[in-house]
Amino acid sequence: MKLDVEHADDAWEVEALFDHCFAPGRTALSSYRLRDGIPPARDLCLVARADGTIGGAVRFWPIRVGDHEAMLLGPIAVHPTRQGEGLGAALICEGQERARAAGVERILLVGDAPYYGRFGFARLNGVEMPPPTNPERVLGCWDWDGVTGPVRRAAD
């Protein structure tokens, strides 16, 4: 599997992967309202490709928390036939490396702390995702000291 930046012509295949891996109502989740009308951070969005087929993908989106900028990681998906190969971990680690090199100070995601904790993510107290997000699943890595408030679209 080769990791590469997601290009505009990959979008349909990435969306098909997300549709395959997630419930049909995935776009109704509150995190999608943060993405409405906002382009992803293309230099951070990655695909894992083998034999011309995308086996995994991750996207990053600019957001604001209080007066602070951050990146929202997600969605991330690995095709069921490629799971267990470390693709998810590779996508997260490479995405974090690229984000740090680009000067990103903090990354937020909604997910399971036991899985994402190994990448430095921990529960964020005082950071409020739009409802109905479970606060226990709001995780962040890097510089969240003193950052609190509602999460909102980068354009708001």
Rank of each mutant, 00 (worst) to 15 (best):
E136F: 00
M129H: 13
R123I: 06
A8V: 09
D10N: 11
G55W: 02
I54H: 11
A8S: 07
A99W: 05
W144Q: 01
P150S: 11
L34Y: 02
H7C: 09
L108N: 04
A50P: 01
P40H: 13
R100N: 00
V147S: 06
E13T: 06
C45S: 14
G149K: 04
P131C: 08
G55D: 13
L44C: 06
P135K: 03
V5A: 15
E136N: 11
L109P: 04
R152D: 07
N134W: 00
A101D: 15
C45L: 10
P150I: 06
E6A: 08
G37V: 06
L91Y: 12
G117M: 02
R98D: 10
D9H: 12
T81E: 15
V78P: 07
H7E: 14
G146K: 00
V47N: 04
R64D: 08
T53V: 15
G66R: 05
V65Q: 04
P114T: 06
D51A: 15
P132A: 13
V151D: 14
R137Y: 03
T148I: 12
E85T: 02
P39G: 11
V65N: 07
A101L: 11
A16D: 15
T148Q: 06
M71F: 13
G103K: 10
I107L: 14
G56N: 04
R100F: 02
G140V: 10
Y116A: 03
V14T: 08
G126P: 14
E136P: 01
G37C: 08
T81K: 03
A99L: 08
H79N: 12
A57S: 14
V127T: 09
E15P: 01
E136G: 05
A41G: 03
R64M: 11
D156R: 03
F22P: 09
V78N: 04
E69M: 00
T148M: 02
A122D: 14
P131D: 14
W12E: 13
N125F: 03
